[in-house]
Write a protein that binds this DNA or RNA. Structure first.
Length: 448
RNA sequence: GGGGAGAUUCCCGAGUGGCCAAAGGGAACAGACUGUAAAUCUGUCGGCGUAGCCUUCGGAGGUUCGAAUCCUCCUCUCCCCA
């Protein structure tokens, strides 16, 4: 049975609207494909690849997800390709050498989380999820060499990044060289008509076109989408750089993260993440006060991935928390799961901070305390608070070896002192990390 | 296959026998100031209970009272030649 599609003009307008692709390679081909699809009643196969080993999608990824959604709404087929095979062999950026091999179960678990996340933007019933191990996993070396033989080194060296590293005498592994080819084959296997990707993927995506031609297929159309910079305003949004806003972040978190973007990013975020048309963005931005603009943006973004109500509440909470410097209540911390149990009430504070995972070492915890970054129940802890000259306050977990020393110094020097507060108490570490520390379950139950 | 250069703490990079847990810069973190922004200033930035002690300078041995620094072998990277 044949599907019907809107007129090509209308489709094109839709695909180029809202967040426009930075580049379409190329537009005539896209028009031609759309026309043919309409004439034949055959939906286009629109593909985007995702990394199987990093299954958290952020609002930068969402830029192209929304574009995929436009395709979906126009009646085309969206293929969500999970690069489980390529994820297993390595990383093309040259940063990390080899990634840990993913097991079948991990891949499936990641695929499931992808599906959940993607459904916040796309219609989950209309996604074809595929894995590139389907074809690469089966491949023998002859087929592989056949693929490799279709390109030359010079072609690969066209990539600016390789040229640069070559000039800088940096190393490039052969695997990295092969990576674009392996990836390119995915589009051959999927018979993709269109592929979406970030502009940073341009080289790899152009390679897919060349490889498709080499296999006698019509090259796919590329929609290169703009990259969103991370909340720090310097680098691209990336989990490893810690400057992300995940599409699954809870409302308050999301709101707060939007508020923390640098001012230079306001326009970029409005354009790429708000869902407004460029005319609307234009209108908003002229003469707007950055602080207000950010609030408005935060509200829109939260509403997009949660709903209006959540966005409103997140906004109010934000104001309460950060304008009036309120601490979250015990109930809120419990609700969010920012709760940590300690073994005993008699534990040295840096040990607690370390134990709950707020710092990488006790030394770091101590440093933070010295810097005035740690508070308990709204009272700032100073380094002196950590020590006592009364041995009954000493952390009893500090064992035998130290016991002797402790005795020697009794009366003269100071010892680590256990937390003086009754549990449960609220511990603040750094600017925005709060933990409810408790010792026995009963204490918690009283609150929930 | 031959010749040369190199591997330092998250990154870049100094250090060529004790003064080195290792300069400097970047990143990061914290405090002050603020709008959870930027800029700025200040501080921190291997691990331990403040003390000294432990572990770290590609890997394994060795020389030495003492090694990131010297020697041997190994691994890896880059350059030039074939």
């Amino acid at each position: 049975m044949k599907s019907t599609f809107p007129p090509v003009e209308e489709q094109l307008a839709r695909l180029k609207g809202s967040v426009a692709p930075v580049e379409i390679i190329n537009e005539e081909e896209l028009t031609a494909r759309l026309e043919r699809s309409r004439a034949e009643g055959r939906p286009l196969r629109v593909k985007q690849g995702f990394d199987a080993s990093a299954p958290d999608l952020h609002i930068g990824h969402a830029v192209s997800l929304w574009k995929l959604r436009a395709f979906q709404e126009l009646g085309h087929t969206v293929i969500f390709l999970i690069g489980d095979f390529t994820g297993m062999v390595g990383d093309p950026s040259g940063r990390s050498k080899t990634r840990p091999r993913l097991t079948r179960e991990e891949v499936e678990a990641n695929a499931q989380t992808y599906r959940d996340q993607v459904s916040r933007v796309l219609d989950p019933d209309k996604i074809e999820i595929r894995y590139n191990s389907e074809w690469h996993g089966e491949r023998d070396i002859y087929e592989f060499l056949d693929l490799v033989s279709r390109r030359t080194v010079a072609r690969i060296l066209e990539r600016a990044d390789f040229r640069k590293r070559l000039q800088a005498d940096d190393d490039i592994s052969i695997l990295e060289f092969l990576y674009p080819l392996i990836q390119a084959y995915d589009s051959v296997a999927l018979e993709a008509d269109v592929e979406l990707g970030g502009t940073d993927q341009k080289f790899n995506l152009v390679m897919t076109r060349q490889i498709q031609r080499a296999y006698g297929l019509e090259p796919q159309v590329l929609l290169l989408m703009p990259l969103l910079r991370g909340t720090d305003g310097n680098k691209k949004m990336s989990k490893s750089l810690g400057n992300v806003i995940d599409i699954t972040d809870p409302p308050e978190e999301m709101y707060g993260r939007v508020m923390s973007i640098s001012d230079d990013l306001i326009e970029e975020y409005y354009r790429l993440t708000s869902g407004l048309s460029s005319a609307e963005v234009e209108a908003k931005l002229t003469g707007g006060d950055p602080y207000k603009l950010k609030h408005e943006l935060a509200r829109m973004i939260v509403a997009r991935y949660h709903d209006e109500k959540a966005a409103g509440e997140a906004g109010e909470e934000f104001l309460a928390r950060f304008r009036q410097h309120e601490w979250p209540t015990v109930e809120e911390l419990i609700a969010k799961g920012n709760v940590a149990k300690i073994k005993s009430e008699h534990v040295w504070l840096p040990a607690i901070i370390h134990e709950i995972g707020a710092t990488r070492s006790k030394g770091e915890a101590k440093r933070l305390i010295a810097e005035g970054a740690v508070s308990i129940d709204k009272k700032r802890i100073s380094i002196e608070d950590l020590y006592t000259s009364k041995s009954e306050d000493v952390d009893p977990h500090l064992s035998g070896v130290n016991q002797a020393r402790r005795e020697i110094r009794e009366g003269k020097l100071k010892f680590p002192r256990t937390v003086q507060n009754q549990t449960p108490f609220v511990l603040k570490v750094g600017k925005r990390r709060f933990y409810l520390i408790y010792h026995d379950e009963e204490q918690l139950k009283r609150h929930s």
